[in-house]
Nucleic acid binder design. Structure first.
Lengths: 236, 236
DNA sequence: CAGTGGTCTAGACCACTGA
DNA sequence: CAGTGGTCTAGACCACTGT
């Protein structure tokens, strides 16, 4: 393992996700962990603080660190995760239909969202996510053409994120999500099985690379009864 | 200031929120900050990492730390904030109507949400939030009676959080939010100015104290066109 | 009281950036 | 090359919990 503290973090995150460590279990103390991993206490603390931030454990001064019962089956959860990650983790039957995949000049709205001039081309990918036989989500992705290598149908059918991060070495550093409830468009009605719903849950996702450049804007349009978003927050 | 690193964090968070530090401004290097604050570099790093986590700055190895243009006027934002905090920060005209304030035995649903037996009493507070003359949000709070001191109307009219945290010394450590879109109930229709909308955005909020006990469950029901939730996420 | 986590220090080496 | 942030160490003192 490269990073010691990331190694410790992964060890415990995995054990908690798998259920090997039950909620309310007390973790070894920081000094014990430092000895176990033959490292310093500050390094152990980095790992434990990461676990605490992500909702795996809770630390109490004078007592110790304890496994939380909060994190369990709560996906999709706040953060940077692709549809494939979520669907797979939840064990869903899913399918992706690529509606279109092309390089276009962005409309005024998309250009402004990506902070581009309307003459800069973007990759435009429209996809429908089908879960249990129903078309639930309409994903409209826009990626800066100047940054992204040529995309293919098979990439989009799988996961664009996975392709960019693993095959190429894209370093995605952070993202901003804005969640609203919008009236369904005619496009929504024709692309999704809306079952009479007149509204959709919209997640607008702005993704940034490590050098602080915005490179992707995504609009995810969900059928309302299938939408669910979980946020875990800690006091500063 | 008690904590050095929290002091540094506040200094820069304030400057960025006020706009004294413009986006893309380069912060002093960690070594410079350590000298400026007469502390060690690790302490400075704690402050900068907090700023980065909360979306104020972005750090690039070999280059430095830079102010982000992401955080600005994006409330309500992910995290632990009360309605009063949000409304005040956004400069809104707001009013709170307390519909009811009583100690009751919880129904089966609320009892299960609070992990209580149905015989344990809870404080039940129903409030309507009015913004710009329209009733936009219906807040249904349930607090464990065994934990919370007597509540009064004037407390509920202001902010329960503020009262618990400042006047008493309640230490709120973390919270889990679940956001969904639900069909509007007859209660929603009678309490809110729904303008014909048939759905509401529902935020279910589970609040925990420092000893890891759940003490509050809140259901916030928003008129869809006035609902907006922002999430900022960083890669692990 | 001994044990816990929270903060802090003064060093060290590394990988990365820009000139 | 010097400067940056990322990781790590081996100590230290504190505030808090339980016994």
């Amino acid at each position: 393992m490269d990073n010691i503290y990331l190694g410790i973090y992964q060890d415990y995150a995995d054990q908690i996700e798998k259920g090997d460590l039950k909620p309310d279990t007390k973790l070894p103390s920081e000094n014990e962990l430092a000895q176990m991993y033959e490292t310093s206490r500050e390094t152990v603390r980095k790992a434990l603080n990461l676990l605490a931030q992500n909702g795996y454990i809770h630390k109490i001064k004078g007592k110790g660190s304890f496994v939380l019962h909060v994190h369990k089956f709560d996906f999709p959860v706040s953060g940077l995760v692709s549809f494939k990650e979520i669907a797979t983790k939840m064990g869903l039957q899913w399918k992706t239909h690529v509606l279109s995949l092309e390089v276009v000049k962005p409309g005024r709205y998309v250009a402004s969202q990506l902070e581009l001039s309307p003459s800069d081309p973007v990759w435009q990918v429209f996809r429908i996510r089908e879960v249990a036989g129903e078309r639930i989500i309409l994903d409209k992705d826009y990626l800066k053409e100047s940054v992204v290598p040529p995309l293919t149908l098979s990439i989009c059918q799988d996961s664009i994120y996975e392709f960019l991060e693993q095959n190429l070495d894209f370093k995605i550093s952070f993202a901003k999500k804005v969640i609203t409830m919008d009236e369904a468009t005619t496009e929504d009605h024709s692309c999704l099985d809306l079952r009479g719903y007149q509204m959709v849950a919209v997640v607008r996702n702005y993704v940034y690379l490590e050098d602080n450049t915005l490179f992707q804007y995504t609009e995810s349009r969900h059928r309302p009864d299938k939408f669910r978003f979980v946020d875990f927050a800690r006091r500063p």
